[in-house]
Design a protein around this nucleic acid. Structure first.
Lengths: 237, 237
DNA sequence: TCTGGAGAGTTTATGCCGTACACTCAAATG
DNA sequence: CATTTGAGTGTACGGCATAAACTCTCCAGA
């Protein structure tokens, strides 16, 4: 508009400000992960991803991904790629699975959206498949059939991703209702406590809401993980 | 428009066709559950709920619920109310918890949206609270502290709701991609298998995708539930 | 050196969604 | 009978994903 100006006058010095034919899948995926980490899944819009990449329009992304859902697939696989995965199982099956579970949990704590999205898409990405193969290999080497190994792997992931989902959605709720400071958080739990107390028939729940007790989240996670691993061990016999 | 007609001519016989001041929370909740059961969460719009109730506008619902999210709360509590809950725990703690878990699973299989929504809202409804109180009571009577009882109850629900979530999202995916008939379903799994086979380093996964094996869903659920109950039993000492 | 794609990114438009706001009009209340 | 209330409507707004048509730049081949 301002270059071009009045036909016949080239205005060579008014350069189109560098060619920025710069998008590709990897950059878009990384930007999407960045947006989701910072703004949550609610903030993950095509517009926000495009803006994070520079002065792009939302539609620019559709050159490189077919749909928002396929962008989800890319995000899930890129996040899974962050989980350290040994080339081969070590000798200690239980340690191998435990380490993988803990590393997966570390990843989901960096990317709270992961647990929400993973349930909505088939696990077809290469890194997701390799991770599953690792778990299957560990279990089959202990004598499990592939069918049983799949069952056990699913139970481990159910625990890992279930924990992640619950914690991430709790955090999302707190964020949405502005429970940043302790005062508001206390008010919110007080509301719950009053609701429970008003019922009259909820002594244990009321007690817990008055004095929340029990192991911290990390220990709760470990307890549940050991339940699953103990169960598998018993069945591997 | 057609009554009113030309000022001064009352047209008394053109009755407003019955007063239908008929909405309330219960009816709206039931309609919303019906819509979600039949059309899934994607189909659960204020418009669809209003239409199911009769010739209402979407805005009519907002007289009775503050927002769509508060409608979620009503739905979750109404669905929870469907779970049979003994007035008092019986003598068999393990049987009590097992039965509750199985009944909860039966409810979620009637209402696949439950597992998706339950993670997004605080469990503040009266029926949800009473159900949790029941689990706490059972566990505290076996000598657990309230804090530990809360941990164990959360682990049971993680398994129950995690299973439900996975199965419901699988079904949603299949529905969305029109995998109604076996031919299409086979084609979809063949795509996955080819992807895995192409990688070259995924023998167990490829094998399983070629010949899916292992216990059926109901048994897989029971295996995981027993893992959790066994773990709790061991800790109750 | 010219020309004709090809393809990256933009613009515009469509059809949903939740819901704020101002309104109508019958029912309930005095 | 007069007044108030509150259920349900109509309209409008802003935001979303994305389809379709467009522009402009780069590059391949003549």
């Amino acid at each position: 508009m301002s270059e071009g100006e009045t036909n016949g006058f080239p205005l060579i010095w008014t350069q189109p400000p560098t060619r920025r034919r710069g998008l590709d899948r990897e950059k878009i995926t990384a930007a999407a992960i960045g947006v989701a980490d910072e703004a949550g899944l609610d903030g993950l819009t095509m517009k926000a991803v495009a803006a994070r990449l520079g002065p792009y329009s939302p539609m620019a992304l559709y050159r490189h991904v077919q749909s928002k859902e396929s962008l989800f697939d890319l995000m899930l696989d890129a996040a899974t790629a962050e989980i350290p995965l040994p080339a081969e199982p070590g000798g200690d099956w239980r340690g191998d699975l435990r380490t993988l579970a803990l590393e997966t949990r570390r990843m989901t704590s960096r990317h709270p959206w992961f647990a929400v999205l993973v349930h909505a898409r088939p696990p077809a990405g290469p890194h997701m498949m390799r991770r599953l193969e690792f778990m299957l290999t560990v279990l089959v080497r202990q004598g499990a059939t592939v069918g049983d190994a799949m069952t056990y792997a699913a139970l481990i992931d159910r625990h890992v991703l279930g924990s992640a989902l619950q914690e991430s959605e709790e955090a999302r709720l707190e964020r949405r209702h502005g429970l940043d400071d302790d005062a508001r958080r206390y008010a919110a739990i007080a509301t719950l406590r009053d609701l429970a107390a008003a019922d009259g028939g909820l002594p244990h729940l009321t007690e817990w809401l008055t004095h929340p007790a029990g192991p911290p989240p990390e220990e709760r996670f470990a307890i549940g993980l050991d339940f699953v691993l103990d169960g598998i061990a018993a069945r591997l016999g």
